[in-house]
Simulated scan of single mutants.
Amino acid sequence: MYLYEIKEALNARVLSGEEHLDREVKSACASDFMSDVLAYVKDQSLLITGMVNPQVVRTAEMMDMKCIIFVRGKVPGEDILELARERDIVVMSSAIRMFIACGLLYSRGLEG
């Protein structure tokens, strides 16, 4: 699934990295606990979270993720967006709750 398709499915707003919406992702994970992402996630390239702090970007970078989607209407500050830009990670925000976001993406073929 391409990031532009994910943007449309979640009615998301791109906050950083709009030039990379042609990237393809094969799987996603969702968590507000970055320790769980580090411990249990393997080969996912999309992170769905409501946790808004710089550690999210650092975790995504460590796990080689291409995109972070902040759900529940969360919008990161400029410091977090700048960190993502430096690491070439696309950042989006969606008003949709995490559970619904996961369901919408799964129903369109994105694996967990």
Rank of each mutant, 00 (worst) to 15 (best):
I68H: 12
V56I: 06
D22A: 10
E111C: 06
V56S: 10
I80K: 09
G50L: 01
I68W: 05
E82M: 11
V25Y: 06
H20E: 11
Q44K: 09
V75M: 12
C67V: 15
R85P: 02
A28M: 08
A101S: 13
V57L: 01
D36T: 02
K66L: 10
G109M: 10
L21H: 01
A95C: 08
V37L: 01
Q44S: 14
E82I: 05
K74D: 12
R13Y: 08
V52H: 03
Y40K: 01
F99R: 04
S27V: 02
A12F: 04
V14M: 05
F99H: 07
I80C: 09
C102E: 04
I80Y: 09
I48L: 14
A28I: 01
V90I: 10
L38E: 00
S93L: 03
V56W: 04
D22C: 05
K26A: 14
E61F: 15
V25R: 06
G109W: 09
V57I: 15
E5H: 12
L83I: 11
R108V: 03
V41R: 00
R87V: 07
G77Q: 11
I68R: 11
I80M: 13
I6K: 01
E24S: 09
M65S: 10
M98G: 10
G109K: 10
M51Y: 03
M65W: 09
A12M: 06
M92Q: 11
G103R: 01
K7G: 02
Y2A: 01
P54V: 03
K66R: 11
M63I: 09
G109H: 14
V91I: 15
R87L: 14
F70H: 11
L105S: 06
A12T: 05
Q44P: 00
M98Y: 00
A84T: 11
V41F: 00
L15G: 12
A30F: 00
K7Q: 10
D32W: 00
E5R: 04
L21M: 02
A101V: 05
A101R: 04
G77L: 10
A101K: 07
D79W: 04
R85Y: 11
R85D: 07
S45F: 00
G17S: 03
L10G: 12
E5W: 02
L10F: 11
A95G: 13
E61Q: 07
V90D: 06
E78F: 11
K74A: 15
D43M: 02
L110R: 05
A12L: 06
D88I: 03
V75N: 14
D32Q: 01
D64W: 05
T59A: 06
L83V: 08
V90E: 13
V14A: 08
L83E: 14
D32S: 07
G73Y: 07
R87T: 06
Y106P: 05
D22G: 12
R72I: 05
I6A: 08
S107A: 12
M1E: 02
V14E: 07
F33T: 03
E61M: 08
I6S: 12
E111A: 13
P54L: 06
Q55S: 08
R85M: 06
V25I: 09
N11R: 13
Y40N: 04
I80P: 05
R58L: 14
